[in-house]
């Protein structure tokens, strides 16, 4: 084995330069030609940065569309799911509480209209999206608080929603931050 140590050592040093210095620098250089210099795609309102397009943020006010429950409370300095198992009684209690809270804030909505993404925590705790149904079920509340017709808000959802890839692959969804920015400019 000893005969291999010295060549291995030299090869390791060369490969550290190739894989850990040159390679990331190359990718970083390619990134400079993309959105926001490859430092993450930012979202703007009136020219001001209001966060990152892909990083979900917390919305508390009833006048905004709300995102999914988050195990890290949308603190993007970290990330985590709840890691609760499907049969965990404490977890099921939390889900029940979320349903009850949602019904209080959205009078007139039936339980069966709530889609499951609104009462379950996302994998990252930073999910920027909700399903289309999750947006639609909040429309009556938003319309009432913002003095708009429900039709206007539905139209807004149709405008902001993201189609499946090439319109055939993957789920339809809507970016909550983009939707709320659009809502403000309505």
């Amino acid at each position: 084995m000893r005969t291999y140590i010295l060549p291995s050592l030299k090869l390791t040093l060369v490969l550290i330069i190739v894989c850990s210095v040159l390679y990331p620098l190359l990718i970083s250089a390619i990134g400079k030609f993309t959105h926001d210099d490859g430092a993450g795609v930012k979202a703007y309102e009136h020219g001001l940065v209001v966060g990152y397009e892909n990083v979900g943020q917390k919305f508390i006010a009833d006048t905004y569309f709300q995102g999914r429950p988050s195990a890290v409370d949308y603190n993007a300095a970290g990330s985590a799911g709840s890691n609760k198992g499907p049969s965990n009684p404490d977890y099921l209690k939390i889900v029940q509480e979320r349903i009850d809270t949602f019904l209080i804030h959205n009078p007139g909505i039936k339980k069966s209209e709530i889609p499951s993404d609104l009462v379950t925590a996302s994998g990252s705790g930073l999910d920027p999206h909700i399903s289309i149904q999750a947006a639609k079920v909040q429309v009556p509340r938003i319309a009432k608080l913002r003095n708009r017709t429900e039709k206007e808000i539905y139209q807004l959802i149709d405008k902001v929603k993201e189609e499946p890839m090439l319109s055939v692959f993957g789920p339809e969804r809507i970016n909550v931050l983009k939707l709320n920015i659009a809502l403000n400019t309505l």
Partner: peptide, 16 residues
Amino acid sequence: MGIDQSLGSMEGKEVR
């Protein structure tokens, strides 16, 4: 609990 499961099991999953 009466919640529609047509999206599937979403705990720990991402909508996109």
